[in-house]
Amino acid sequence: MDREAAQRRLVEKARAGEKRAFNALYRQYAPVVYSLARHMMRDDEAAADVTQETFVRAWRALDSLNDPQAFGGWIRMIALNQVRDWARAHRPTGSLDADSADQVPRQWADESIGPAEQLEISEQQQQVRDAIARLGEDQQVVVVMHHLEGKPVADISRELGIPLGTVLSRLARGREALRRKLAPHVED
């Protein structure tokens, strides 16, 4: 049985109320959801809460998932909505990372870079995360899967059950939208 067929079967069983099947889906997607939430929120505890809430909501809403093959894209979308809600509730400015501008991501924590530069990079990364969070849902999922998770477009097409041309088009529109939102950082 191929991966897509196996996943379809798990989703159908979970829809029928089988918690063991839902646990198998959890084991497959929890690292994806948790890592995404952690990246967007910069808060391990909040990321765990969002992961938990994402799967509870998914369980309750399984009947609204039209294509079981698209479970991966669907669960990421729920997670990103949770991240957005959390940001609205916890950050008065609506920013995803307003109170942690001094937390420099590990990959940027280079001693050769001065504190002022590190702060600038941190703020830039925060704006990138905000810009991703404000993309339309379709574009957001494709951008996250391709740019943040590093998935090839053909894999995204298969995982979401949509044509390759649609993936490329959503990716292109997403990139245009991000380019506009991040204009100060990408223009000469």
Binding site: P31, A48, Q125, E187
Partner: peptide, 18 residues
């Protein structure tokens, strides 16, 4: 070039177990 810089700003995430 602006579009290519935009893509370069999107840094990959490292996957971690919950």
């Amino acid at each position: 070039e602006a579009l290519e810089r935009t893509a370069a700003l999107l840094t990959p995430i490292s996957q971690v177990e919950p």
